[in-house]
Design a binder for these strands. Structure first.
Length: 295
DNA sequence: CGTGCCCCCTGTCAGC
DNA sequence: TGCTGACAGGGGGCAC
């Protein structure tokens, strides 16, 4: 569910309330959300405090600093100093990360998976109905190796139209599938892939390597514009996604094709089509996004 | 290696 | 009203 704009919104909402907060206790209600035992997970975090909060693709990175007498570090350097770990959270389809202030009047989350009790009395709750999400603690080496497996950040300076064209050339996969592959670009999911392809007037089934010249430039611009605008709207809440404070994103009202099968194309008024491939729906306008690439 | 398909899980909604 | 099947923002594993 949550794609780059949704995760970015959550990251921004977590920075202030988490900064410097020490974890006093952890309750693991759903151990299947972890890649290790609840005991190991807890001992790596309890006693440590949150430092930097960041994002990589659709993942949240909650960097930890080992405490003076707690928060067993994930590893020790040869000189014995504690290496800080990073809590990496992937929200899957329905995950939420919610901060609850000490006397929060908001209703208790219905599907809590992990609760982090913090030193100021607030609670960070990982909530996930479908439990496709994962919480992992990585040491710096593992974090770097993991990050290297992901593609570039589409909003980073280095992500140019030229770089995109170069990458597209190496694949015959349908462009919509290509955009969803996190090893090629990090952070794009089904909503924003469809929206970007509509804006770029590229058919979702077009082979990646067939997108060249002007079409590449349009796709590059469209991707970045859609992601930035969605961040400005705090993301898209269709059902499960919530900000760190439980709010909804408002970009849903601005979607042009995603979820709009049969409704008029905003450009030509012909009905939006939906076809399924790669196990997911692609929404597009047959007239504005012809199968033959318009360069 | 690249690509496509199935599955993980729960909830919701359309159709009968 | 109740049952059944399709579908949902993601991603890992496996077969080809």
């Amino acid at each position: 569910m949550p794609e780059l704009p949704e995760v970015e919104t959550i990251v921004r909402g977590l920075r202030r309330p988490l900064r410097g907060r020490r974890v006093r206790a952890i309750e693991v209600l759903r151990p299947d959300l972890l890649d290790t035992t609840a005991t190991r997970f807890s001992s790596a975090i309890v006693g440590a405090s949150f430092s930097r909060v960041a994002r990589r693709g659709k993942n949240l990175l909650l960097h930890l600093e080992a405490g003076p007498n707690g928060g067993r570090p994930t590893r020790r350097r040869p000189d014995g100093a504690a290496e800080p770990g990073t809590l990496v959270v992937n929200l899957g389809m329905s995950g939420r990360l919610l901060v609850r202030a000490p006397a929060d009047s908001a209703p208790e989350p219905t599907h809590p998976g992990v609760r982090f009790r913090l030193d100021d009395g607030s609670v960070l709750v990982y909530h996930d109905v479908r439990r496709f999400g994962r919480l992992r603690v990585m040491d710096p080496g593992a974090l770097a190796a993991w990050s290297d497996c992901l593609g570039p950040e589409p909003l980073a300076r280095g992500f140019t139209a030229r770089a995109l064209e170069e990458a597209l050339r190496r694949s015959a996969a349908p462009i919509r599938s290509w955009l969803l592959d996190q090893r090629r670009i990090a952070g794009v999911g089904n909503i924003y892939a469809n929206e970007a392809l509509f804006r770029a007037r590229v058919h979702p089934g077009a082979p990646a390597r067939g997108i060249v010249g002007g079409a590449t430039k349009r796709l590059h611009r469209a991707l970045r514009a859609v992601l930035r605008e969605a961040i400005d709207s705090n993301g898209t809440t269709l059902r499960d996604y919530r900000t760190a404070r439980g709010g909804e994103g408002s970009y849903g009202a601005r979607l042009r094709v995603y979820g709009r099968e049969g409704r008029p194309c905003p450009s030509c008024r012909r009905p939006i089509a939906r076809v399924t491939f790669g196990g997911r729906s692609a929404y597009f306008c047959r007239s504005c996004q012809p199968r033959r690439i318009v360069r």
